[in-house]
Design a protein around this nucleic acid. Structure first.
Length: 580
RNA sequence: GCUGGGUUCGUAUAACGGUCAGUACACAAGAUUCUCAAUCUUGUAAUAUGGGUUCGAUUCCCGUACCCAGUACCA
């Protein structure tokens, strides 16, 4: 029994998109199985016909696929090569179908068996009757529980004459089968994460196991039966299931399956960052970050964003998720799926709920971005550039026909055409400042498109200069700038610094000898400015403003050597015209 | 309410009776720099609480507080 092949399952309910807590549960199951060379099974628990949401199942399959969490069992390929939940038995899927709604006939037999052995009974109370009993009890400040104490006073096979039971079974269709929870028995359980737990059965109720109305089992029955049939060895699921663990133990016992009962591990919940309750599907993106792996468009049309669409690398998402409630026991934090598989252990899963932290998620993505080769990043950046109306071509030659005029840099600013090599060089120059592929545009759009407007940068807003928060504060704070401080800002830029910047760039183009390297530009500019004892920072900032339209950004030499002399001069001229 | 689970810096966590309570993110300061980042250095910051057990408790036991889950013919 202890030598059984490890088989674990992820059994989501298709009632909506899978949220990140669900993905983490799937991930832990996957890691656990892979480490032991076992099987990871996907099973769809759609026993609630009322809560079925179209598209949810496909979403689950796609989300797991995006994360690289591949089930060994439960999926089959469609003719067009996509994965879908398996319906036909095959060597890969010996227990098909894996959708509980398609396993209907299996469950009733097991429920009847329980009745035959006295572990369950037919109940005829309607939902309305039970509801009013609950309301009654609530009015008295009590809680109504369907159990040993109350069942004799309710309408079921235990309280009704046998003939009446027979009659109701034959004539009505909304009866259920309930588990007969014994009175005052101690259930001793062991959880792989929480240790030993004991519960007295008197505090438990007679859960519904099977519903005649839709001829479907409830979660509890379906879950136990399928886990047994599919030879599951460990059940790793969310903490919200802990309260029903005693029932599950009792069911295994009632079926006589105690010897092959799986071991249980209840994972800590993923909590909302604001500290109120568990992260739920309904949180959507109201919290400022996605709670879903993929974008989800609800049947109502409501859109929830996803990590994939927000630009996260799946590896970063998985890595981040793995560390929400688990750690490898050493100080590693960046780990590939292979490393996670190797290091995973339920011993290092924490007991308390984990609060998600956006900053840490950003950090993870940045780390993965840095691990990604520039050429791959350039490829990912292409669609972003195209979305901004730019064209990217594979080589200069292929663009000539499109009318491109390259000046040696691989960039045609006039026609907005750039070579793939140019894009890659931009990535190389800026990847240290990016966390997401989209960041490249925010950081370095001026390496593709020159600034149009300078007013947004406060050139005329003298008052803003006083504030420390102003990114240009350092420019004026310097004591060397003291003489300029007395004058107004407009004058400072236009009369004192601006001409110097123009002259500096003029010099630069004059000495240009076809070799416009970063270090060459840097040296030439610095020598020129220092020789004249000009305030270096002021002049440089002024040039940056003209070239990038911003008071912050890449080094001047980097910008100039990227965009080339012609564009540099053109931008200076344009800025001069606009700024005076 | 009841039943069960949980509680180490702001956050995620390490330390499975003996540590100056460690690390990462975030934050702050400094270095660097033509700006902004990045980088490097340094720093602020935690064992919920009261009792035990013990030579010694973050760690074991009990109480209290607080948080969470469950309490459906939902999963």
């Amino acid at each position: 029994m202890s030598e059984r092949r490890t088989r674990v399952r992820f059994a989501p309910s298709p009632t909506g998109p899978l949220h990140m807590g669900g993905v983490r549960t799937a991930l832990y199951n996957y890691l656990y199985a892979k480490q032991r060379g076992g099987d990871f099974i996907l099973r769809i628990e759609d026993t609630d016909s009322h809560r079925f949401v179209p598209g949810a199942e496909e979403y689950i399959v796609e989300a797991l696929d995006w994360c690289g969490i591949v089930p060994d069992e439960g999926l089959e390929k469609t003719p067009d090569g996509k994965w879908k939940v398996a319906e036909e038995a095959s060597p890969r899927n010996p227990h098909a179908p894996y959708r509980q709604s398609q396993r209907k006939p299996i469950y009733r037999e097991f429920a009847e068996k329980l009745i035959a052995n006295g572990y369950a009974y037919y109940a005829f109370d309607t939902p309305e009757e039970l509801d009013s009993r609950r309301k009654e009890a609530e009015a008295k400040g009590e809680t109504f529980i369907y159990n040993h104490a109350t069942r004799t006073g309710l309408r079921n096979a235990l309280s009704l004459p046998a003939e009446e039971t027979e009659r109701l079974l034959a004539t009505t269709t909304d009866w259920t089968i309930r588990f007969k929870m014994p009175e005052n028995e101690v259930v001793a359980m062991d959880d792989l994460i929480r240790g030993h737990i004991e519960v007295n059965t008197s505090t438990l109720d007679d859960k519904v196991l099977w519903k005649r109305a839709d001829e479907l089992p409830t979660y509890h029955l379906a879950n136990i039966v399928d886990d047994h049939l599919m030879e599951i060895t460990e059940v790793i699921r969310g903490e919200e299931w802990l309260p029903s663990l005693p029932l599950h133990y009792m069911l295994y016992k009632a079926f006589g399956w105690t010897d092959s009962m799986p071991r249980f591990a209840h994972l800590p919940l993923l909590l909302k960052p604001d500290g109120k309750g568990k992260l739920s599907k309904r949180d959507g993106d109201k919290l400022g970050f996605p709670v879903f792996p993929l974008r989800w468009v609800a049947p109502t049309g409501e859109v929830s964003r996803g990590y994939r669409e927000d630009g996260y690398f799946p590896q970063a998402f998985v890595n981040m998720l793995a560390f929400l409630g688990w750690n490898p026991g050493d100080e590693r934090e960046i780990m590939s799926m292979e490393e996670l598989i190797e290091a995973f252990s339920l011993d290092h899963v924490s007991k308390s709920g984990a609060r998600f932290n956006v900053e840490k998620a950003h950090w993870y993505n940045r780390e993965y971005l840095r691990l990604t080769p520039s050429d791959d990043l350039a490829g990912l950046l292409v669609p972003v550039l195209e979305a901004h109306g730019l064209k990217v071509v594979d080589c200069p030659a292929c663009a000539i026909t499109a009318g491109a005029e390259f000046n040696g840099t691989g960039a045609d600013f006039k026609n907005h055409i750039f070579t793939r090599d140019y894009v890659r060089s931009v990535v190389e120059f800026t990847s240290e400042r990016a966390s997401f592929v989209e960041d490249f545009w925010k950081i370095a759009s001026y390496l593709f498109v020159g600034p149009k407007d300078f007013e947004a940068f406060g050139i005329k807003a003298g008052a803003a200069v006083e504030q420390k928060a102003d990114p240009r504060a350092k420019v004026w704070d310097d004591t060397a700038t003291a003489p300029f401080l007395a004058k107004d800002v407009d004058k400072f830029w236009k009369e004192d610094i601006w001409p110097l910047a123009v002259e500096a760039v003029g010099y630069l183009t004059a000495v240009y000898d076809g070799e416009f390297s970063t270090s060459g530009v840097e040296t030439a500019l610095e020598e020129f400015i220092k020789a004249r004892e000009w305030p270096m920072g002021k002049v440089m900032n002024c040039i940056r403003l003209a070239l990038a339209g911003s008071a912050s950004g890449l080094g001047i030499a980097d910008i100039v050597s990227r965009i080339g002399p012609e564009e540099t001069v053109a931008r200076m001229a344009y800025a001069r015209e606009r700024l005076g």
